[in-house]
């Protein structure tokens, strides 16, 4: 419950002269629900794309000691849910969830179908398996994408704004799902979210990114940050207040 699973050292992200994040270092412990916070446009999704090996900055990122690299096609070591869901539009919801299973297991088709249904039930999408992604609402797409990310039973899951666009009840259910998976199965989560309630409920550690300073401005347990941070930006975020106007 405390070995580092993801290690990031001196990561700098930027494009043609513009820097988004400067020399960031942090560690995600095994078994954590690690939350990435920050205002919109500060680079949370981009940081996640670097963590999962879709983009490369300077610096070093390792997951279980190895660099994540999506260039090689091997059985994935983790599941990912993108901000938009990114379901394959040509396949039904059920086929989307079944896809990684078809690719990476020797299970017969009926077993794969059964697993896909069970995963969909887990995220509250009973009866949606034969619909196309375009027939789902934004929130349903996200849940289907979570089901797909969990298809291969990864012990590490990346979720980009899982509860944005969900109604409050579904958002609470999602939090409970994350907690259950985390506590019962020991799955480590890296979650990008704005949802304060969810941060305090599920987050065991967090980092907060900041657009102006291009760096991590706070790290640690979200509850203690809320109660005792001395940084005005951090307090403003957690207490949903305005930043005092800069002098």
């Amino acid at each position: 419950m405390s070995a580092p699973l993801i290690e990031v050292a001196d990561l700098t992200i930027g494009w043609d002269g513009r820097v988004l994040l400067q020399a960031a270092s942090f560690v995600v412990e095994q078994g954590a629900v690690f939350v990435i916070l920050g205002g919109s446009g500060c680079g949370k999704s981009t940081l996640m794309r670097h963590l999962i090996g879709l983009e490369f900055g300077s610096g070093r990122i390792t997951i279980e000691g190895e660099a994540p690299d999506q260039g090689v096609t091997a059985r994935p070591r983790f599941g990912v849910m993108f901000q938009s869901g990114a379901l394959l539009g040509g396949l039904t919801v059920g086929e989307n969830v079944a896809l990684p299973l078809q690719q990476w297991t020797n299970l017969p088709a009926d077993a794969i179908g059964g697993i896909a249904l069970a995963k969909l039930r887990l995220v509250g999408l009973v009866g949606a398996e034969d619909l196309l992604p375009e027939e789902l609402s934004g929130g349903m797409r996200k849940r289907a994408a979570i089901a797909r990310a969990m298809a291969l039973e990864p012990d590490l899951l990346f979720l980009d704004e899982p509860s944005a666009g969900l109604d409050p009840v579904s958002a609470v259910e999602l939090d409970e799902l994350i907690l259950t998976l985390n506590q019962q199965l020991g799955i480590t989560f890296v979650v990008v979210t704005h949802d304060l309630e969810s941060i305090f409920k599920v987050g065991s550690a967090c980092i907060m990114l900041d657009k102006e300073s291009k760096s991590i401005i706070a790290r640690g347990d979200p509850r203690s940050l809320r109660d005792s941070s001395t940084d005005a930006r951090v307090r403003a975020f957690f207490n949903r207040t305005h930043l005092p106007v800069a002098a």
Binding site: R49, I52, L54, Q70, T73, A74, R75, P76, F78, G79, V80, F82, S84, A86, L87, L88, G89, L99, P100, Q103, W104, A145, R148
Partner: peptide
Amino acid sequence: GFMQVNGEIDALRTMGIGPMR
């Protein structure tokens, strides 16, 4: 192209499925 801008290609990659094959 649509799959690319919609993030589906990235999603395939993260599932260990190369868009080539």
